[in-house]
Write a protein that binds this DNA or RNA. Sequence first.
DNA 1: TATTAACACTACAACGTTTTCGTGAACTTC
DNA 2: GAAGTTCACGAAAACGTTGTAGTGTTAATA
Lengths: 345, 345
Amino acid sequence: MKKKITIKQLAAELGVSVSTVSKSLHDSPEISKETREKVQAFAKLYNYRPNNIALSLKNKKTKTIGVIIPEVVHHFFAMVVKGVEQVAMERGYNVVISLSNESFEKEVINMETFADSLIGGFIMSLSKETLKKQDYHHIHQTIEEGMPVVLFDRTVPEINCDKVIVNDEQGALLATKHLIDQGKKNILLITTEDYISVGRLRTQGYLKALQEANIPLNNGLIIKTEDTNRSDIILPLLENELRTALKQNPEIDGIFTVNEIYAAAAMRVIREFNLNIPNDISLVCFTDGVISKYATPPLSTVNQHGTQIGIEAANLLIDRLENKIEQPKPITKVVACEIVRRDST
Amino acid sequence: MKKKITIKQLAAELGVSVSTVSKSLHDSPEISKETREKVQAFAKLYNYRPNNIALSLKNKKTKTIGVIIPEVVHHFFAMVVKGVEQVAMERGYNVVISLSNESFEKEVINMETFADSLIGGFIMSLSKETLKKQDYHHIHQTIEEGMPVVLFDRTVPEINCDKVIVNDEQGALLATKHLIDQGKKNILLITTEDYISVGRLRTQGYLKALQEANIPLNNGLIIKTEDTNRSDIILPLLENELRTALKQNPEIDGIFTVNEIYAAAAMRVIREFNLNIPNDISLVCFTDGVISKYATPPLSTVNQHGTQIGIEAANLLIDRLENKIEQPKPITKVVACEIVRRDST
DNA sequence: TATTAACACTACAACGTTTTCGTGAACTTC
DNA sequence: GAAGTTCACGAAAACGTTGTAGTGTTAATA
């Protein structure tokens, strides 16, 4: 077992001082060319690589960014992680991730653990529980301690920090309009309760699209579900509501859902009713994930560009860490949504 | 902005030495009760939390484990990450992740970056390119340097380290048997080329099941595809092969695929042929992910228990790091697969 | 020949901890 | 009253690195 070698050991081996080795490795002109080359050759030979922990301690900063997300087995969040990792890698940073599991308490603990240690800044999306509780002390404290925080997707105006958001309202507007453009007039919306900011915004987009097209609002065509992790409990309830809605409103000719899971449930019920997608009912949903892509028929979706969000967030955070942003005030970047047309519309 | 306070600052504030503060915080009996309490009160007041970097440097080890996976936007790997993160959290470790994107070069670079720094050990799954190249020098070197490595899922006998694997062969055997048990006799297999170890093992399981049931092998019923990331290119090709196979072998009454994507492609083609699932053709696939769960009909699958794999791997690695394993020889843990029965069979 | 400059290198402090080894002062013990 | 013991605390080294401030030797200058 070859343990890692330190500068001190190299120095001893070469019969020079530690400083000489350090300077040689940095190609300092203070050291003669011969010595430099000799040291570098030895370093290569022994496979010397600097100890980043010592460096971090010395420089009082680490090249590590912390990502706190509610869930990783989730297409959108995984995409964001992918984007973050990509730029982190390019810019020489490490990514440490931690999952809140949609729990407020875990989010707080994770944040404290990270802040205790090796993290230079955070990229995070709030857990549902945090949004519900509206308790953001842990984030305020972290910012107070001088760590930059970039919030994405699930953000909140009370927190004064950089943000990367998708234009949820516009995405929903596009999706609804897309249905209207196909001649659909009776569009059912499946969304979440309003405390989930993205659900609320998407609902707004839907309403706006109807308004712009002068389609009167029918509240019977809006289904709001409690948004928990327990899809096994929620979905049957949702499907029932949907059945009722379809029975009471046989004129429904389009459905827009705020996520893929709801769309999958809708597909199932539509099939039950022996209706055809897209002829009888067109279907669009938010999130361009695997469910939509591999469904039969493949679903038209609103692509949120998760990877792009991750990229923007990481660049924003690293720019802050490296003081590359003159602007002291928080910046909010908006990533546009885009309709992905497939066979369901 | 309240910067984090250090022991030194606390000591100055209290008019005692650094040692006294450190000992007080650790409740050393060497320090008088009064002093201890005073120090602790101050520490709480100033929200003192030890600097983990300094600790790591002192102790020459970090409480961080590195996870290197080919892809995070992937149900199985995300599940594993979730499992790893869960036990890491419980046992006081951080998780830093890095994505190889199925690239050999990125895998090597990532590993070196990690090894340079804050990582105590690795949990990883090899990239497809690495498997193809059969070049494992980076892993051998890491192990040589004394860092424990736990390989999962995509492992290789040439690397002598702890492993956590799913019983791919047994899973495939179960799946094929499951079809046979439904009275199906002409079972099509969609798999990958043999250099992907899991593909090869699953093919073996399929063959074994046929053999055990005394069903003669028909090579026309095995489709092997190149397994790349470019599903947009692969899938149409695959679907074509599948159409040909179905035309040439109209007796096909069951399909087993080694992943969900292939199953989604199969569903599409089956629908094209106006065949019913499961009456005309039953369908089972590996990977119990969202596609199977939300497909219509929901697919029967082989659950690989990704989270469980992550849990086992993390416990194994941390046990090694903490010398809780007397056994110096590598350990291989096998996580059993399980058939999830749904409506496609 | 004495002063200075350039060169090539070394010593040392610092980053924040922990821990071993002192060290005075008060108190026992015979 | 001398010697030992306990108590409560402090000094300093160590982890690996960097950068500032020396230091000694040789060469150039006046």
